[in-house]
């Protein structure tokens, strides 16, 4: 194998892989697309959840109250392809204050002016830290989705070839092929894909494969009123995200960080990545996910070693002369 081939093979396995669609056999692939979910502007309206269910005809999967803030969806799953997380924190965000005296404020005059204080002149914006660091509550909301990993464990382990890489670089299940073996479910490092009870097959976000083919953006991105969910070519989204996080840092939101945008991370970079305001695990995301197949070469090596050891042990057990005593004793008893 030439050094070049070797490099290619390693790229397919693990690490940055710039041409996912081409590597999967799509010649002339369009640019890879994805989502950039900027949670700093999410208002928790769940329009994405609804739009996804409607467009993809995803069945109802339980109407109940969970006791987890406004999140009654729970988690991503077979019948939840967008999930809005709600986190309540005792932590300053915008320095909101209770019992403020508004008696001096002429709201009508304010309204006539057309807008409140221009941002540049404002003493504080919804995202600026409290002056004394003593804000009371911040409410984090984040719309989660399948990450459409560069190295997708679900796809790697699928034995039927039901999961495949599309020409857009996304990861999609073929419902007419999936036999419900369930291997993809524990393989996903984010707990995204799941088998649907009663149906048996595995389901997850398709990044609206049908809409992409028609040149439309996915339903959730279309429905998001704040553009918290942005759809587009991955390269462009990454540039936009870098700019946004820098802007937030300038504005004093030190907590802002990107999650999943780095092609050098454990899944080779996610096709759907996020801007978060706290550690990933606070939103139920793994802090350092790794594609499990990264270690598969080692697993096969050890499996081969174990198989050889098994053969060796039996060879040892059957070797050597048969002890006559045992046979005689047994024969005597007969």
């Amino acid at each position: 194998m030439s050094a070049q081939d070797e490099g290619r093979l390693r790229r397919l396995w693990w690490g940055p892989e710039p041409e996912v669609a081409a590597d999967a056999g799509h010649g002339q692939a369009p640019p890879r697309v994805g989502f950039f979910t900027d949670t700093s502007v999410c208002i928790g309206c769940k329009a994405c959840e609804v739009a996804c269910k409607e467009w993809n005809a995803v069945p109802e999967d339980g109407l109940s109250l969970t006791g987890m803030s406004y999140d009654n969806t729970g988690a991503l799953g077979a019948s939840t392809w967008r999930h809005v997380a709600f986190v309540e924190q005792q932590k300053p965000l915008g320095g909101q204050q209770a019992r403020v005296d508004h008696s001096e404020l002429d709201v009508l005059a304010l309204a006539r002016r057309g807008s409140g204080t221009p941002v540049a002149e404002a003493e504080m914006t919804p995202t600026s830290p409290g002056r004394d660091g003593s804000g009371e509550l911040r409410w984090l909301m984040a719309s989660d989705v399948c990450k459409h990993c560069t190295h997708a464990a679900c796809l790697d382990v699928c034995p039927t070839g039901s999961l495949f890489r599309t020409e857009f670089g996304t990861v999609v299940v073929q419902e007419d092929v999936c036999n419900g073996c369930g291997y993809c479910v524990p393989a996903c490092p984010y707990g995204v894909i799941e088998q649907r009870p009663g149906d048996g097959r595995a389901w997850k976000c398709t990044l609206c494969y049908d809409r992409l083919g028609e040149g439309l953006e996915p339903a959730c991105a279309k429905a998001c009123p704040t553009d918290s969910i942005q759809f587009g070519p991955l390269e462009e989204l990454r540039a936009r995200a870098a700019e946004r996080v820098a802007q937030l840092h300038r504005d004093g939101v030190a907590d802002a960080r990107l999650y999943g945008e780095d092609p050098g991370d454990g899944v080779g970079g996610a096709g759907a990545f996020f801007l978060l305001l706290d550690e990933p695990e606070v939103y139920g995301l793994p802090p350092d996910p790794q594609v499990t197949t990264r270690d598969l070469p080692a697993m096969w090596r050890h499996a081969a070693g174990a198989a050889a050891a098994l053969l060796g042990a039996f060879a040892l057990a059957f070797s050597g002369p048969r002890r006559a005593a045992g046979r005689r004793r047994a024969a005597g008893r007969r």
């Binding site: 382990v157 034995p159 036999n179 073996c181 149906d199 048996g200």
Partner: peptide, 18 residues
């Protein structure tokens, strides 16, 4: 299997990654 009647789909492909 979630879809036992599709057990033969196991032999559609041979994937060393799986």
């Amino acid at each position: 299997l979630g879809r036992p009647e599709r057990f033969l789909h196991m032999l559609r492909v041979l994937k060393p990654t799986s």
